[in-house]
Amino acid sequence: MSELIHNFGIDWKLLLAQAVNFLILLFILKRFAYEPILKMLRSRKEGIEKGYEFMREADERLRGVDKFREDKMKEANQEALLIVKRGEESGKERQAEIIVSANKKAESVMLEAKRIIGEERAKLEESVSRDAEVLVRSGLEKVLGKVPAEVRDKELIHEAMRELKVVR
């Protein structure tokens, strides 16, 4: 056994030295490499996760904004169409109204004209018939030389005039 140990060069002092060497290395690497690196990895992972989450959220929100804009556009489009349509309709209505009112006015004007014409004609006829009465009376007077009983004459003339009117 001791020969074996000798052949392999085993020396407890060397063993201890190697072990201490390893432990020192372990301690220093832990202090200066592993712990900072692990901390860094963890914090970076968190950062990336946060960033990813943020990105997803932003993406979602952006999509929402897009949709909102699209909706608004559609709405505005529809509204515009509606306004144009309404304008057209009201224009048409207005047109119809104007036409109707113009027609009415024209009609009323025509009626008024007709009325006036009628009145004028009535007046004319009256004056004509009065004139005619006077004329006929004076004619008769001239022809007969005498003035017939006024009342009867008048009646006769009126009758004649009525007849005349009816005939005409």
């Binding site: 190697q18 060497n21 390893f22 020192i24 290395l25 220093i28 690497l29 200066f32 490499a33 900072p36 690196i37 860094m40 914090s43 970076r44 950062g47």
Partner: peptide, 21 residues
């Protein structure tokens, strides 16, 4: 093994000084 350990320690310190996100 001392040299190995020293190299590793030097590397670790180098790393520690320049650690960045």
């Amino acid at each position: 093994s001392w040299i190995t350990a020293l190299l590793l320690i030097a590397g670790a310190v180098f790393l520690y000084r320049r650690m960045a996100q």
